[in-house]
Design a protein around this nucleic acid. Structure first.
Length: 502
DNA sequence: CGTTTAATATGTATATATTAAACGGTGCCATACT
């Protein structure tokens, strides 16, 4: 079997040898085991399901979070590797989609890329069952925990969806997962502890830096200086679309480098254009919200600047993880101020329902009402919240059936409590982000420990707490920002508010 | 909750100060509408 694996690796992927972790994941997958693979960005995750897809008898379904990722990967497989792959999603018209699915039914495709939403459609499942599903790969599997509980609950429905496909083995892969996230993925898909394959998540080539800023002008000045002086391509992350637009306009006015913006408010053509330009080296820096970056294949990103505090260490680690996939040194700067927390708190409060909203939703749900635009407007609820509440309501009602003998709980109360629980989890993640900037210990250690990583080695620089100065990093002098005691104290107060009361 | 933008106030023409209102992330899909 070993020889076969290597033959496929060379024949289809052009590599002489496997990269660390790959062979061990693939072996288990070929044995029919369900596996969770954790590999640092740039570790070659996609080969771990693309190669088994060629060797296994049936089709491999790749659950992918973004249409743009499906398009990229399928194109690469078809043109560069000559592997028969396809995708089904909402960019296709019904006739087109039917054509693809009919081809799949005949077994002409080895890989199908699809979203968790689309995978629930009965016709899609019917076709896949005809072809026979050998493996379900879940790409960017941290999305299950990051999005499954609120933003895209279809991620948490995946175990039920896979039941309809006869529970094929699962290979979940990601670059960031805390112990809690690993446990959640394992229990959802029945992955045994010995089938969790972990490569080191420590990013030895990244130098971690941190600076507290006072006021908008200081923040902006520091950011623009960094963009001007740092070498190579980079990304600047902001918390809001507006901040992105403002920064782009301000920098383009008299900045030295080629910079453009990217966020969810832009249409897909614009977004595609900007991303393509960045990948092709026609843009030096992208200023973006967290909409940018997932799955982008650019090995030479040299720096990431966080203009504001991100919402969690998971998000932070994902975003800086895009630095230096080529293994060459890179630099991560996190700018923060006390007021950065407010936007995240606001979003959190807005995302989750009040008891009244749950009640109104439940009444309509019970009455069998469709949650169309009109109904939603009537109860003043967003499409997103209705989708989330549908999920929790379904859970509450099916759960009630199972345990009906014990006690009859109020479903509305039950649903609201479940959503409050998730809200508390998110609040805690935000507090952990704040703790990170407040703690005075080594940044690398703190971040690595959060993800259960014990290796803290580094190549050139560790972090600003371990003696990295920006002057040293850039090889020239630069104004250092002095943190003010007052602001730190306020931030501690804000942190206290985030933590649950005892 | 903080920042940005729009609207008003001032006191007699342009611009600044003050106050009020608006706004805020991530994407799939289906459906309704042009």
């Amino acid at each position: 079997m070993n020889k076969d694996m290597e033959w496929y690796l060379k024949e289809y992927f052009g590599y002489e040898a496997f990269r660390p972790g790959q062979a061990s994941i693939i072996k288990r997958v070929l044995e029919g085991q369900s596996v969770l693979g954790l590999m640092a960005t740039g570790g070659g995750k996609s080969v771990t399901y693309q190669l088994p897809a060629l060797m296994l008898p049936g089709i491999t379904v790749v659950v992918s979070p973004l249409i743009s990722l499906m398009v990229d990967q399928v194109q690469q497989l078809r043109t560069k590797k000559r592997i028969p792959a396809a995708y089904v999603n909402s960019t296709q018209d019904p006739a087109e989609a039917r054509e693809v699915l009919q081809k799949i039914a005949t077994g002409a495709c080895k890989l199908l890329y699809i979203s968790p939403e689309k995978l629930q459609q009965p016709y899609v499942q019917h076709v896949l069952n005809q072809a026979g599903v050998s493996l379900v790969a879940i790409d960017e599997a941290h999305c299950i925990s990051a999005w499954g509980h609120d933003f895209r609950t279809d991620y948490l429905r995946l175990p039920d969806t896979l039941k309809q496909l006869g529970n094929p083995p699962v290979l979940a892969v990601t670059a960031t997962a805390t112990t809690a996230v690993r446990n959640e993925i394992c229990s959802l898909f029945g992955i045994a502890q010995e089938h969790v394959v972990v490569q080191t998540l420590n990013r030895a080539n990244i130098a971690y830096d941190l600076a507290e800023v006072n006021g908008e002008s200081e923040r902006r000045q520091l950011t623009f200086e960094l963009i001007d002086r740092l070498e190579g391509p980079g990304i600047v992350y902001c918390s809001t679309r507006q901040a992105v637009d403002v920064l782009v306009a301000a920098y383009q006015l008299d900045g030295k480098r080629r910079v453009d913006g990217y966020h969810g408010g832009m249409n897909s053509m614009e977004r595609m254009l900007i991303q393509t330009q960045f990948l092709a080296g026609e843009l030096d820096v992208i200023i973006a919200t967290n909409a940018f970056g997932m799955g982008i294949d650019k090995p030479d990103i040299r720096f990431v600047i966080h203009y504001q505090l991100p919402a969690s260490l998971e998000a932070y680690s994902q975003e800086i993880g895009r630095i230096g996939r080529d293994g060459r040194p890179g630099y991560a700067m996190l700018l923060y101020a006390q007021e950065d927390i407010q936007i995240h708190q606001y979003m959190l409060d807005k995302e989750y329902p009040t008891p009244l909203q749950v009640q109104q939703f439940f009444q309509h749900y019970r009455a069998g009402a469709a949650f169309d635009a009109q109904t939603l407007a009537m109860i003043d609820m967003s499409e997103e919240m209705a989708a989330m509440l549908t999920f929790y309501t379904e859970r509450a009602l099916s759960g009630a059936q199972v345990s009906s003998s014990t006690e009859v709980t109020n479903p509305v109360q039950d649903i609201w409590q479940k959503t409050e629980k998730r809200k508390a989890v998110k609040r805690k993640k935000l507090s952990e982000m704040v703790s990170y900037v407040l703690a005075e210990s080594c940044l690398r250690k703190h971040l690595n420990q959060y993800f259960g990583e014990k290796d803290h080695s580094y190549q050139h620089f560790c972090c600003s707490r371990c003696g990295l100065s920006r002057a040293a990093y850039e090889g020239e002098r630069m104004v250092m920002v002095q943190p003010e005691a007052q602001n730190r104290w306020n931030l501690r107060q804000a942190l206290d508010k985030l933590l649950p009361k005892k």
